[in-house]
Nucleic acid binder design. Structure first.
Length: 735
DNA sequence: ATAGGGTTAG
C-alpha cells in the first residue's frame, strides 16, 4: 500500500478520517506511521485510545523508541503494556526492551527481563540471547555476559567481538585473548570490527602496550587498519610516548588518505602532544583544512600538557573567535590548564562563563575546577561546585569525591572534608591519601594515624603518598618517635621503599624536634644523592632552632643545587637577621642582587562574600587600603598597650626599627586578615591563604588579633595550616 | 524484529 510513504500531515488527515467515518484500519499501521514520523505524542495518544492494543502495537512503538535512543519512553511503554494491559512480551519485542535497559545502564531492569525470558522459555531464542549478551557487556557485567555466551548454540562473529572488546575494556587481558583464540577454534574468522574492539578496549582500560601489540598483530595477520583502528591505537602510542611508532602511523594515515577523518586527526595531535613533540603537533594542526572542535581541543591540551600555558590560552582564545561551538571538553581543558598553573581566579571565571554559554559541566569538569577553589580557599565557589555535583548526581565518582576532600581541606574546613570522605561508598587510594593529607596539613597527627589504622583494616594498601602524609603529620605535631617508627615500617611492613621525599620528611621531623645532628646524619647516610628539598628541610630546621653553623652548611648545598630559588636566600638571611647578624644579612642580599634575583613577592588571598581578594606585600592599590592601614595602626597600638611588641627580626633589610615596623605592616597576610576583619561580621571565621611561609611577626600579630577580636583565623602557608584561636596557634609556634 | 569498533578534558 502507499500508506508507508504518507507524510505526517497526510497521516493526521487519515487518522481524522478514520475517526469520522469509523473506517476500519488496523490501528498499528497508523501507529507505525506516527512512530516513523517521530510523532511520539500522537503515537502515545493513539495507543492509549485503542481499547485493546495488542503486543504488536506496543512492539511497533517500543522498537521506534529504542531505535532512536529514547530508552526511558521505551521502558515506560513496556511497563504500561504489562501492568495496564496484562500483555506479555514475545521474542520479537524483548531485544528492543533489553537494548533500552542497556542504554539506561539499568542493570536491575535488564536482569528482570532476563529472568522473565528464562522463566517463559524465551531465552532460548538466539536474538534474545544476543541482545542480552550485549546488554551485560554494556553494563560491565562480564561474568553474566560470558555465561550467556557459553549457552549460545551458534555464537557468531558479532557476539564474539562484543565479548572480546568487553573483556579488553575491563582490562581482562587474559580473558580477551582467550575468547579471541576460541573464535579460531570455532571456525569464526575475526573481522576488522573484532580487531578494532580489541585495540580500543585495551586502550580504554589503559593497557596501552597491549593495545599497540594488538595493532601490530592485526597488521601481521594481514588486516588493513582503518580510521577507527588508528584513532584507537594513537592514544596508547601517546601514553607510551613512543614517537617512532607514532610517526610511522602518521605516515600510514597520510598514505591511506585518512587525513580528513576528524577522529584520526585529533588523535594525531594528541599523540604528538603526549610525546612532547609540540612542533609536529602544531604542524599537523595547521595542515588540517577543516579544523573541527576535537582538533582544537587536542591542541589546547597539548600545549597545556607541555607547560606552554600562554600558547594554550592563545589557542583557546582563537578558538572562541571561530564559528565552532565549544563543547564541555574545550572548557574543561582550559579550566584544568588554569587551575594547574596558578591561574586560579581565571579558572573560576571560565567555569562561570562556560555555564553562561549553556555548556553543562560534567564529572570531569568538577575535579578540574576544585583544585583552583582549594588553591585560593575560594570556599563559596567550592561549595557551589559541590552542590552542582550533588544535583547532577556525579558526586559518587571517586575523582569528584577526592577532589572535594582536597578542596575542603585546603579551604580549612577539614570536618567538611571528613564528611565527604565518610559519605563516599567506595574509597580508592586517592581518597584515603586526600583525607590523610588534609589532616596532616592541619597538624592533626592523631587523626592521620587513626585513619591509617582504618585503612589497614580495610582492603586498601598504602602507597608512598600515604607515608608522606603520615610523616609530615608526625613532624607537624611533634610526634617524633612515631614518625621514625612509620619510616622504619614503610619497607619492613609494607614493602614500600622510602623515596627522597620521605627522607626529607624524616629530616624535618628530626629537625623540628631539635635533633639537628641526627637530621644531618640522616642526610649523610641516605641512599640517594640529597637534593635541594632535603637540604632545604635542614635549613628550615636551623631557622626554628637558630643554629647558624649548620644553617651555613645546609645553605651552601641548597645554593649549589637550586641557585635560582630566592626563597632559600631569604631563609638564610632571616636566620642571620634573627640573631642580629646584619653584616651577614647584607652579604646574602648582595649575593641575591648579583645573581639578579628578587624576593618572591608575598601574596595572600581571602574570600569575602563570594569574591576572592588578592593582596600583594607592599601593594597599596586595594580600594580599602586607607581603612586597612588605620585598622592596622589601631591594632598595633592595642598590642603595644598589652606589652606585645612587634618582632622585627623577620625583616630582610637592616633598617631603623620604626621603618622595619612599617615594612612589616605591608605583609600580605596581615593585610588580608585586616581586610577580613573590616568586611565580615563580628565573630565569623577568617580564612587566608599565603604563597610563602608565614612570617614570625605576622604570626604574633594574628595570634593577638584572634584573642583581641575574638575571631578564629585560619592561615594556610606553603607548609601547613595555622589555626589561630584565643591567642594561640595550632602549630604550637613551630613551623 | 536483535546485536559490533573511534578522538580531545581528570
Amino acid at each position: 500500500m502507499i500508506m508507508t510513504t504518507l507524510s505526517l500531515p497526510q497521516t493526521r488527515q487519515l487518522h481524522a478520517q478514520i475517526l469520522r467515518t469509523t473506517l476500519f484500519l488496523d490501528p498499528t499501521r497508523l501507529l507505525s506511521l506516527y512512530a516513523n514520523h517521530l510523532c511520539f505524542s500522537d503515537a502515545d495518544r493513539l495507543i492509549n485510545s485503542i481499547q485493546h492494543p495488542d503486543v504488536f502495537s506496543f512492539s511497533t512503538l517500543i522498537h521506534a523508541y529504542s531505535k532512536l535512543g529514547r530508552f526511558t519512553e521505551a521502558i515506560t511503554s513496556f511497563s504500561r503494556m504489562i501492568f495496564n494491559h496484562g500483555l506479555l512480551p514475545d521474542t520479537r519485542l524483548l531485544p528492543s526492551v533489553i537494548k533500552a535497559c542497556g542504554g539506561l545502564n539499568d542493570l536491575r531492569g535488564g536482569k528482570q527481563v532476563h529472568g522473565f525470558s528464562v522463566a517463559s522459555g524465551l531465552s532460548q531464542d538466539s536474538f534474545v540471547q544476543s541482545s542480552l549478551l550485549h546488554f551485560y557487556v554494556k553494563c560491565h557485567h562480564m561474568s553474566y555476559a560470558h555465561k550467556l555466551f557459553d549457552v549460545m548454540t551458534q555464537p557468531d562473529v558479532v557476539s564474539c567481538s562484543a565479548l572480546v572488546s568487553g573483556y579488553a575494556r575491563e582490562g581482562s587481558v587474559k580473558e580477551a585473548k582467550m575468547v579471541f583464540g576460541m573464535m579460531a577454534e570455532m571456525g569464526i574468522e575475526p573481522n576488522l570490527v573484532s580487531w578494532n574492539g580489541m585495540v580500543a578496549g585495551f586502550n580504554q582500560s589503559r593497557h596501552h602496550l597491549e593495545a599497540v601489540m594488538m595493532f601490530q598483530n592485526m597488521h601481521f595477520s594481514g588486516f588493513k587498519p582503518d580510521g577507527t583502528t588508528i584513532s584507537s591505537v594513537l592514544p596508547a602510542v601517546g601514553d607510551l610516548e613512543d614517537l617512532l611508532i607514532g610517526v610511522q602511523i602518521h605516515g600510514y594515515t597520510c598514505k591511506q588518505g585518512l587525513g580528513s577523518d576528524k577522529f584520526v586527526v585529533s588523535a594525531l595531535i594528541d599523540m604528538y602532544g603526549r610525546c612532547s613533540s609540540t612542533m609536529e603537533m602544531s604542524q599537523v594542526f595547521h595542515e588540517i583544512p577543516d579544523k573541527d572542535i576535537g582538533a582544537w581541543n587536542a591542541l589546547v591540551s597539548g600545549f597545556a600538557r607541555n607547560g606552554l600555558i600562554d600558547d594554550a590560552l592563545n589557542a583557546f582564545n582563537q578558538l572562541r573567535n571561530k564559528e565552532l561551538e565549544l563543547n564541555v571538553v574545550s572548557w574543561t581543558s582550559i579550566i584544568a590548564c588554569c587551575s594547574q598553573h596558578g591561574k586560579d581566579i581565571e579558572a573560576l571565571d571560565l567555569f562561570r562563563e562556560m555555564q553562561l554559554y549553556g555548556v553543562k559541566p560534567n564529572v570531569v569538569t568538577i575535579p578540574c575546577l576544585l583544585p583552583a577553589c582549594g588553591n585560593i580557599a575560594a570556599l563559596m565557589h567550592g561549595k557551589a561546585a559541590h552542590a552542582f555535583s550533588l544535583r547532577t548526581a556525579i558526586s559518587d565518582s571517586v575523582y569528584v569525591g577526592s577532589a572535594l576532600i582536597d578542596m575542603y581541606a585546603n579551604c580549612g574546613r577539614i570536618h567538611l572534608a571528613r564528611t565527604c570522605f565518610n559519605r563516599m561508598r567506595v574509597h580508592n587510594i586517592v581518597c584515603w591519601n586526600a583525607i590523610m593529607g588534609g589532616y596532616a596539613m592541619h597538624g592533626n597527627a592523631n587523626e592521620v594515624i587513626e585513619i591509617f589504622h582504618l585503612m589497614e583494616k580495610s582492603d586498601q594498601k598504602p602507597d608512598c603518598i600515604t607515608f608522606t602524609s603520615l610523616l609530615s603529620a608526625c613532624s607537624h605535631s611533634g610526634f617524633t618517635e612515631q614518625g621514625e617508627q612509620f619510616f622504619n615500617r614503610m619497607y619492613k611492613d609494607f614493602g614500600i621503599k622510602p623515596r627522597i621525599e620521605h627522607y626529607a620528611c624524616l629530616v624535618t621531623l628530626l629537625g623540628r624536634a631539635g635533633k639537628l645532628k641526627e637530621a644531618f646524619s640522616t642526610i649523610e647516610n641516605m641512599p640517594f644523592e640529597p637534593d635541594a628539598c632535603v637540604w632545604g628541610a635542614l635549613l628550615s630546621s636551623c631557622r626554628v632552632h637558630s643554629n647558624i653553623k649548620l644553617a651555613e652548611v645546609a645553605a651552601k648545598k641548597v645554593f649549589e643545587l637550586e641557585p635560582n630559588n630566592p626563597g632559600n636566600y631569604v631563609l638564610l638571611s632571616n636566620i642571620y637577621a634573627n640573631k642580629g647578624l646584619w653584616k651577614e644579612v647584607a652579604k646574602v642580599r648582595d649575593l641575591m642582587k648579583s645573581m639578579g634575583m628578587k624576593k618572591n613577592p608575598g601574596c595572600s588571598w581571602i574570600e569575602i562574600k563570594n569574591k576572592v581578594h588578592m593582596l600583594l606585600a607592599g601593594d597599596v592599590s586595594h580600594p580599602q587600603m586607607i581603612k586597612i592601614l588605620e585598622k592596622m595602626d589601631d591594632l598595633s597600638m592595642e598590642m603595644k598597650k598589652l606589652g606585645c611588641l612587634p618582632v622585627t627580626s623577620f625583616v630582610l633589610q637592616d633598617v631603623e626599627d620604626q621603618e622595619k615596623e612599617h615594612i612589616l605592616c605591608g605583609h600580605s597576610e596581615k593585610l588580608a586578615v585586616v581586610l577580613g576583619l573590616l568586611n565580615t561580621s563580628q565573630g565569623s571565621t577568617l580564612q587566608v591563604i599565603k604563597n610563602l611561609r608565614i612570617c614570625g611577626d605576622c604570626h604574633d600579630f594574628i595570634k593577638f588579633v584572634s584573642k583581641f577580636e575574638q575571631r578564629e583565623i585560619f592561615v594556610r602557608d606553603t607548609n601547613r595550616f595555622h589555626h589561630f584561636k584565643d591567642g594561640l596557634c595550632s602549630c604550637g609556634d613551630y613551623w
